[in-house]
Design a protein around this nucleic acid. Structure first.
Lengths: 345, 345
DNA sequence: CTGAAAGCGCTTACAG
DNA sequence: CTGAAAGCGCTTACAG
């Protein structure tokens, strides 16, 4: 029994003009004299007219909707940070008068899920799509780019980019350099790392940054102290347990691929009766919402996710509105937050 | 340069049938012989045909999109729980083949924001909308109901409901009863409360449940121990500080409107050198993601938000698909989680 | 400055 | 079982 709103036809009749003129007013055409415009606007206000979105899109307008695809390698959803990203995109898009259609993708290998994403583009439900948590140069995303879709992606290398692709990265090399420098200044010489997911570009750049910084400060890269991980709390727990089990000498400090990994690492150390920072100094990455309250509060690199999503959203919406397709990319620096998980030795 | 997909016309030509038949296949009409169906499906698969959503909607189909409106009284966004709700709705809708368009509403008094919500309905962008965090019987939501919109709402009293309204509540009275009973069993007789936002239905039912339980256990309701709050961490901090400043006798235990309030209360107590549970026992409500890790881990009522959103989403989608409009409501019980913020006296 | 008309890509009675 | 046709509510050249 949904009462349908008034349509342009009715507005035209009420205002004593044609449907064409109503449309011109709605779309802010310049060739409408103020008197006519006012007359039409009055009716629009009075009857609360709002154009049917489907009809507009079918007639060629943008959908004013962007897709947000969160690829959940087991740690995106339910994770505070991803939710922060989600909220940031929604809010910034909303400020610019655009809507956000979100999809959570549990497994980027799932054909069904990938088809769901493609469909959103080809059904013309969205004008463009933002991807978070994807592997570097994830094939199905590259395909969408090839097909001319407008794509925004967090965490992707800058090679082989093309029009319609907007890439957002954090300056992880610099972040890792700050971390190593900080530890070096505190007297640490034996420094290890738990790596992130090396399929992700950020996993690669963080590790590359770590290696470069270690060389810069003339510190030894010991393979027993370079542990694989996956950006998850669990991976930090497992990595440290394995290191402790190995019986090899321990580093005095370690850098974690992100704060979740650090939480897991601390959990592992504590379960063995070791204390952070007494027995080992730890640095995280992200400044996770929990990090300040954690015991010990976590020294970490603050990553400005909100700003990243704001810029990415804005760049995408600009391309939608201008109907242009260009390549764009930007990178954001991270800031070292000194808290209590590191000590000078 | 977006390559447009193939359209139904082309599929028809390729399959040697009419557009009508293609449409019948796509919409799974029964009166299509298997041979014809297979022929058409083959073309659809081969060319990756997917119907233009706008055209379908314009021709009368549902949008298969629901709106999710999160009213943020300063503590919804950025809050772990609200994000959990968001993710739950997106996932469950997605499983049922529906999309979710989200809007965050910072201020329910903001005319602009309200118009944005109305527009989503009248532009026919959504088939129905779910509201989280609204005041009980929020006027603009009641208006939408009056106008025949399909609405799902968390936290609303059951009076004056009508078709097209789906209401989800938690059994807060029972939850409060469990809390009071637990404290009573532990020997507490002097019990206070920090109330939630009394404009919210849950604020009302929690307080009503508290009062009823206190009477049932023949405990005194002392007005100095009934403190106003607003479901926020800050409100818990302020409430406890005020109580401590008042110089009046302290209760031995207090029940908090939710866990965030409890976090704030604990912060206030600790800032005065008081310890939970040594100096005061505290019970929260929600089982916030942080509660288990908090110091002290928080005794609380576990609220199954995921199940609530799953049911609400499913009920809404059923009404959309069946094209029916009925009233529906359900309530979910909460479970007491005994942790370390309460002690026997 | 403005109207009549074509077209966007579907769905669905209506006929047969 | 199936096609021709009307209609969904807009936008935008095209004429004037």
């Amino acid at each position: 029994v949904k009462r349908k709103g008034i349509d342009a036809e009715a507005v035209a009749r009420l205002a004593g003009v044609s449907r064409s003129t109503v449309s011109r007013v709605v779309n802010n055409y310049s060739n409408v004299p103020p008197a006519t415009r006012d007359k039409v606007m009055a009716v629009i206000k009075q009857y609360n007219y709002v154009p049917n979105a489907s009809a507009q899109v079918l007639a060629g307008k943008r959908t004013r909707t962007i897709g947000l695809f969160m690829i959940d390698a087991g740690h995106v959803t339910g994770d505070l940070l991803s939710n922060l990203l989600l909220a940031a995109v929604i809010e910034h898009a909303s400020e610019l008068g655009h809507y956000v259609l979100t999809r959570i993708i549990r497994d980027a290998q799932d054909e069904e899920a990938i088809r769901g994403v493609r469909d959103m583009f080809y059904q013309r439900r969205i004008d463009g799509g933002i991807f978070i948590g994807a592997a570097n140069r994830e094939p199905f995303i590259e395909d969408l780019l090839d097909e001319g879709c407008l794509i925004g992606v967090v965490d992707r290398e800058l090679s082989e980019i093309r029009a319609g692709c907007i890439v957002a990265n954090f300056d992880n090399e610099d972040g890792m350099r700050q971390a190593v420098e900080h530890l070096h200044q505190m007297g640490h010489r034996k420094i290890g790392i738990v790596k992130g997911d090396m399929n992700r570009y950020s996993g690669q750049t963080k590790f590359a940054g770590f290696q470069a910084a270690m060389r810069e400060f003339r510190l030894e890269l010991r393979s027993e102290w370079i542990l694989p991980g996956s950006f998850s709390e669990e991976s930090g727990y497992l990595a440290l347990n394995k290191l402790l089990d190995s019986g090899s000498e321990l580093p005095t400090a370690m850098i974690m691929a992100n704060d979740s990994v650090a939480f897991g690492a601390i959990r592992a150390l504590e379960s063995r009766g070791l204390n952070v920072p007494r027995d080992m100094s730890l640095i995280g990455f992200d400044d996770h919402p929990l990090s300040a309250r954690f015991q010990p509060s976590l020294t970490t690199l603050k990553v400005d996710f909100n700003r990243m999503m704001e810029q990415l959203t804005a760049l995408m919406i600009r391309q939608i509105e201008e109907q242009e397709r260009s390549f764009a990319s930007f990178s954001i620096r991270n800031e070292l937050l000194r808290r209590n998980s590191c000590r000078a030795i």
